[in-house]
């Protein structure tokens, strides 16, 4: 029988939501044309539609993730949520800094996607920029998660590494192969 107190339902729920959002964010790599076998039965417009819907939802969750961290403090005694938040973002720990960078990159990803049509770049360039940004984001975010995550055990860390690595490889494969094709032609 475990004698120590369990975390509250609210806290565990927030953790689960955040973890799922992170995995889905990495999963975005796999919801593209890069992963032909998975999206074979979908039309291009549908792929993009799903990619967008899922993307915006999980980005929303992950953007408020730093605030969700301190939210339960509103309902319990202890350090005030605002003070806790200030402590978090002013701690120059590697994991925190990675998190802050990942958060900013994610914000950039989301904002750029929203205003894509107004951006002065061609679709092909946009795709490369989006992909590269996503790649850098995923690596930094995964590093942040492995370093700081409350639930990041060894197995979890391996899984995250594999998933992220796989996604990045997928993306690189797509670009590399494309480039090869173009150079051949």
């Amino acid at each position: 029988m475990s004698t120590f107190p369990e975390r509250s339902l609210l806290k565990e729920s927030l953790s689960v939501v955040t973890i799922l959002a992170f995995f889905q964010m990495v999963g975005q790599f796999f919801w593209t044309r890069a992963n032909k076998s998975a999206v074979a039965q979908l039309t291009m417009s549908k792929i993009i539609k799903y990619h967008k819907i899922i993307g915006y939802i999980v980005v929303m969750v992950l953007l408020i993730h730093p605030f969700l961290l301190v939210l339960p403090r509103l309902f319990e005694s202890g350090v005030a949520p605002v003070d806790a938040f200030v402590t978090i973002i002013t701690t120059l720990h590697r994991g925190v800094v990675l998190g802050l960078i990942a958060w900013s990159l994610m914000l950039a990803l989301a904002v750029m996607s929203l205003v894509r049509k107004r951006l002065p770049m061609q679709y092909k360039t946009w795709r490369v920029v989006h992909g590269m940004l996503a790649m850098v984001f995923a690596i930094i975010a995964a590093w942040h998660v492995i370093n700081l995550g409350r639930h990041s055990t060894l197995v979890m860390s391996l899984f995250i590494s594999m998933l992220t690595g796989g996604g990045v490889l997928f993306l690189l494969k797509t670009y590399m192969l494309k480039k090869k094709k173009t150079s051949e032609a």
Binding site: F4, K11, L69, R73, G78, V79, T87, I88
Partner: peptide
Amino acid sequence: MYCPVDAITI
């Protein structure tokens, strides 16, 4: 109570 990320279980 002081931990900003509520990391400690007692």
